[in-house]
Simulated assay, not measured.
Amino acid sequence: MSLYDDTVLVLKGYEDQEELRQAYLEHLETHPDGLWKACADGHITASALVLDPERGRVLLTLHRKLRMWLQMGGHCEPGDATLAAAALREATEESGIAGLSLLPGGPVRLDRHPIPPPCHRHLDVQYAVVAPPGAVQEISDESLDLRWFAYDEVADVADESVVRLLEAARARL
């Protein structure tokens, strides 16, 4: 199965945010290249919020280009077998933490947002991952900083999309 086919199946199986889910599916139907950064009309991205439920905290990255505290995530790559694998790869690369595990049940949320050129628009499929006990993060080239925040601190540092993602991920736990 191709990444495109997997993404369509994931979106068809996602049971929340009906209007946005349908917009993502229509985007893919209209744009066979809608998974790739080269799609000028926007593209699907995969992200994951890194959780440490035992300590009640999340790991956020201070994004180098956007200068915002965000979850880990980014563009799909040709080697990604599934959308979930893309989210897990991005979370692992950007957090430096080996042994992350996806929360079961597929995506936690969808979030469509504008991005500065050349990308213009991301149609983000958001997952959540759990860090193993004793996980130590390591900053990547894509981050200015990488920091753990208590659940109740997230609203003070991140925008509403990250707050909503955290709420959905905690509900899934």
Rank of each mutant, 00 (worst) to 15 (best):
S2K: 10
L3P: 02
L3W: 07
Y4E: 07
T7H: 02
V8I: 13
L9N: 11
L9Y: 08
L9R: 14
V10Q: 02
G13C: 07
E15T: 14
Q17K: 14
E19H: 12
L20W: 07
Y24D: 13
E26M: 15
H27M: 10
L28M: 10
L28E: 05
E29N: 10
T30G: 05
T30R: 14
W36P: 00
A38W: 01
A38K: 14
A40H: 08
A46D: 01
A46N: 00
S47Q: 11
L51D: 11
R57T: 14
L59S: 12
L60N: 07
R64D: 07
L66D: 01
Q71L: 11
G74F: 04
G74A: 05
D80M: 02
A85Y: 05
L88P: 12
R89W: 03
E93G: 04
I97V: 15
S101N: 15
S101F: 12
G106V: 06
V108E: 09
L110I: 05
D111P: 04
P118I: 02
P118V: 04
P118D: 00
H122D: 13
Q126I: 12
Y127I: 02
V130S: 09
P132T: 03
A135F: 08
S143M: 00
L146S: 01
D152R: 13
E153Q: 10
V154D: 02
A155K: 08
V157K: 09
D159K: 09
E160W: 06
V162Y: 11
V163R: 02
L166V: 07
E167K: 05
E167A: 15
R172T: 10
L173C: 09
